[in-house]
Amino acid sequence: MAGKSGRSISATPENTLKKTIFSWEGVLVILFIAVNIFCMTISDVYNLKNVLREMPKYLAEIFLLLPMAFILVLGEIDISVGSIVCLSATVSCMVCNKGIPFICVILVGILVGTACGMVNGAILTKFDELPPMIVTLATQIIFRGIAEIALGSGGSVSLSNADGFRAIAGRVGIVPYIFFLVIIFAVIAAVILGKTTFGRRVYAMGTNRLTAYYSGVHVKKIRFLIYTVMGALAGICALFMVSSSYGANTTTGSGFEMDAIAMAVFGGISSTGGKGNLAGGIISAFIIVCLRIGLGQVNMNPQLILLILGVLLICAVALPNVIAEIKNARKVASRK
């Protein structure tokens, strides 16, 4: 071949230990420890047992974070998930009250979510000119709207027989089932995104969709799949929501999409696509969960907690940009 100049190109990766520590994930781990120390100092009851006891109601949102990370890496957004949770919770409560076997209730919950996700995916792949933002905005209104219709004028449904849901809210020792499930799902999702060909292709699509398409990536199939899985996991999230509140109403899951996006973005997953990994997302999710529990224990105004989260979210995205800009400006100045 042409390569006769005998130039050789190195293929040995750099030692990445230093990189790991100074990466955003490294910062997040330190932040996680700091948050826990902070919570312990402000609250006397902040210990492992209490944290695990209060965790389930926050953990359910991590089910949404996982597929949301994939969608954000694609450079897209799904703001309909909160409504999918609502619809799925509503329907599973209703079928549960009909007295069918609990395993079927679980299936129904997941299926409803999957169906909603498929609707999003189908519209987005069929009409790929449409921005995901506007499509999921519309389906957000529709899915919650359907739940509202199903719930009728009362606007809520409660379980007449909560045995099944009580069972999935159970624990091994002090650790709730959901904790194990979240960890398993998180590991699977992180491995898929980080280590498999599928994950690589998702990153390729998020960084440069055209190049990915020209390089033979099944762009449509992957998008459809991810939105569908988003729906399915929203279904699982809904089941755990029901298991902690024994019912559903028109506001179930409202704002969850924002929480999931905030966790992911705070974890370093860029909303413009192609950047970040799930390790960061999951650590940041636990930071937020611990912070909420700790601040909740000292009876901090829940609105104040939201305010802090909002500031954190904006700073997490804005600070790197601002720093880069300042560096750039300095470079230009020094050149002159």
Binding site: M258, A262, N301, Q303, V311, L313, I314, V317, A318, E325
Partner: peptide
Amino acid sequence: LVISRAAVPPIIATMGFMYIYRALAYL
């Protein structure tokens, strides 16, 4: 300011401010 100067995507920035201003309303 956050959107134009810190180049934060509008959806993320306004999502954050949605939390912040609503919380301020409560406070």
